[in-house]
Write a protein that binds this DNA or RNA. Structure first.
Lengths: 223, 223
DNA sequence: CAAGCGTTTTAGACACGCTTAAAACTCTTT
DNA sequence: AAAGAGTTTTAAGCGTGTCTAAAACGCTTG
């Protein structure tokens, strides 16, 4: 009845769609993300398409139907609320909450998720800065820029850190660049694309792998 | 790899074993408890026996191996800690926590369960009074008596209420007979087996269905 | 435009977990 | 001891979700 893996596929399709909104999501990218073979992804696509949760054309990738997107947003809501819960209530390090939330998110009754939301006082992002959809699938979409794309001298606040880049969370924590941290771009190297930033009085040189995994928001300018 | 339903079967076999420690657990009783057909239970028994988690003889019922019992106790631990968590932290009514915990218990990583235990300050019973095994499967086994078996005049404390008797939790709550409540047996009817009790100044007549679903402990008598 | 490479789909297989229907067994009852 | 009732097991089938190996496709390159 329920279908356990289905929702995971839908959520991953949604995430991939967001990362690259222009083209449809390829079989291989979903298979990679889920850690299964392309053949398995194809088989799942057929089931999801049969149930009108995705649109699937042979050799042409997939996209979510409105119905599929609703389900995907529900999974993301559960996932990110659970992450917040694990971090804020159970004090589990933020490096681990994504993995744990992946395991837990399917089994949680709606009422439990809703009560967690109340307990947490309606957070609107997960600990890594991704938005938490409300019960109707709505969520804030603030104007964020990749750290990679900043100019020298800009002062910004860290808003989001990609939780699926191996080792990044640990690294970012050591540097004091968690969501909410303030930083200033003090230099850019146009050849190797390194970015030098200053935060809490210390300077750090960030490579491309890092600077394109961190989103920031410009500080409100007055006047 | 993991096997989702397997653990449910093991836990239910354990529960049934406790209810009737003398004979082995029958196929039908497990099937009833799990809400599946006897054929399904038989099929699962073969898988569990193949993996040395139960001992299974054709037409002869099943019993847990030490390994199977360890797993079963782990499930019970998770189940009852989650119940406590749902009741105490998320304030979900105790009538519902058993159902929700059933859904959640498989998906919870050990670390999450352990942190819940710390947050709850190491409770040793679930909200209905069943003991919570520790990480090694050990748990307190206090001397409890069925309310059914009390004599007139005895003063006792409610210790445990069977959470799987339909409607009982609601009924018991209305009567003020939650675990911890004190009561005195004021009469017994030897024909219809009704028991009359007094609690908080009010008297109630309890039928057999109720009196054999509530365990009590005798109050410490001072020497 | 054809060759070739990488991606995707098909084909065939398997484990899990469930079903119904029929056969086998056990136990009680006469 | 045979009959019958109730329980349990077998048999056959279905959906999910995965795999490997082989075939089909599509795109880039010579």
């Amino acid at each position: 009845m329920s279908g356990l893996a289905r929702e995971d596929y839908l959520a991953d399709i949604y995430r991939l769609q967001c990362e690259n909104p222009h083209d449809p999501v390829s079989t291989g990218s979903v298979a990679d993300r889920r850690g299964v073979t392309a053949a398995s992804a194809t088989a799942m696509f057929k089931r999801l398409a049969r149930d009108h949760l995705i649109v699937y054309r042979n050799y042409g990738g997939v996209s979510l139907t409105p119905e599929g997107q609703d389900l995907a947003l529900g999974v993301l809501r559960r996932h990110r609320l659970v992450e917040r819960f694990l971090a804020d209530v159970l004090h589990i390090p933020w490096q681990q909450v994504d993995t744990y939330a992946d395991q837990m998110e399917h089994a949680l009754p709606d009422e439990v998720v809703d009560r967690m939301e109340v307990l947490l006082e309606n957070p609107y992002t997960c600990p890594h800065g991704y938005p938490i959809p409300d019960k109707h699938g709505h969520f804030a979409q603030p104007d964020l820029i990749l750290l990679r794309d900043l100019s020298v001298g800009e002062q910004v606040r860290v808003a989001r850190v990609n939780e699926r880049v191996p080792g990044l969370l640990r690294y970012v924590e050591d540097l004091g660049l968690m969501p909410g941290s303030l930083l200033r771009v003090s230099a850019r190297n146009p050849v190797d694309l390194n970015v030098t930033i200053e935060t809490e009085g210390r300077a750090h040189i960030l490579g491309l792998r890092v600077s394109e995994a961190i989103w920031v928001e410009r500080l409100e300018s007055r006047g």
